[in-house]
Amino acid sequence: MDKLLNLLDRNARMSNAQLAAMLGRTEQEVAEQIAALEKDGVIRAYKAVIDWDKTDREYVTAIIELHVTPKKDRGFEGIAEEIMRFREVESISLMSGGYDFSIVVNARTFRDVATFVAKRLSPLDSVVSTATHFVLRRYKENNVIFLEEDRDERGAL
């Protein structure tokens, strides 16, 4: 099971036949396992890792540190649920350490991020303070390195 997940984690586009060959199982077994993993919510989605800097897309990413006060009737989860509904929010995680939530926000421009923080995030009852950090350049994401591939320097012997 872990081996299958590790393979999919590296490349979700391998065919069931290829996965089956690599794992020494039948195609049928792999298909069933994947179906079960999807059903149980272990596999949530399949996505491409895209280097948007290589496209014309205008976009900006910010990481926002968030301090909140959990209320009696709403714990951290309730607050997270409210925040995750915003379409700008790519991810939200509860953190240990100096602040409560780390949020990754994608928007078209810096101004859009500013507006989002000022008009939508900060006004929420439970939000105490925010600190916004803009991403300047991505080097590696989801284990994929966004630099030109190293040349294979190996020779034949």
């Binding site: 081996k3 393979l7 036949a17 060959a21 690599m22 794992l23 020494g24």
Partner: peptide
Amino acid sequence: RDDYNQRRRLIVDE
């Protein structure tokens, strides 16, 4: 070795 083994199975199959 585990990594090679997966590639090995893939290539033999293909």
